[in-house]
Amino acid sequence: MNINEFINIFNDSELVDNKIVIKSKLYEAVEFVKNNYSYDILKEIIAIDNKDFGIELIYHLYTTVDEEDLFLSITVKNEIVSIVDLFPSAQADENEIYDLFGINFIGNKNLKRLYMPEDWEGFPLRKDYVQDEMRLAWNDSDNV
């Protein structure tokens, strides 16, 4: 794909070692690369908790036509627009990130606790996560 053309259109974006960092308009950017550069697979969404800088989401797209990878990065605080109607596979990733990082994806109606039980408190993959004291009580029991 032509990265310069992309950066011209989304003018708050920049190229930082192999990934394009955008500040806003995530949905439009993904839609743009899907329609114009035939990026047809969303391989995964990677979430990283950068402590005070917020949570970074990396959208990893791939095109089977040109056989190229694209990493789109955006930093969010608590919520971001969902791209589930562009790529249905995002449902899986968004639900995982909702469960483990506590980020709300606006527009995705199917979000729920996935890996953790419904009554679990906290988001395990955040850096400031403290283990659930209540559950640890199970391990202290002397049933043996």
Partner: peptide, 9 residues
């Protein structure tokens, strides 16, 4: 040895 489960609340 009985079965044991805790209510988290």
């Amino acid at each position: 040895h009985k079965t044991k489960l805790f209510d988290t609340n």
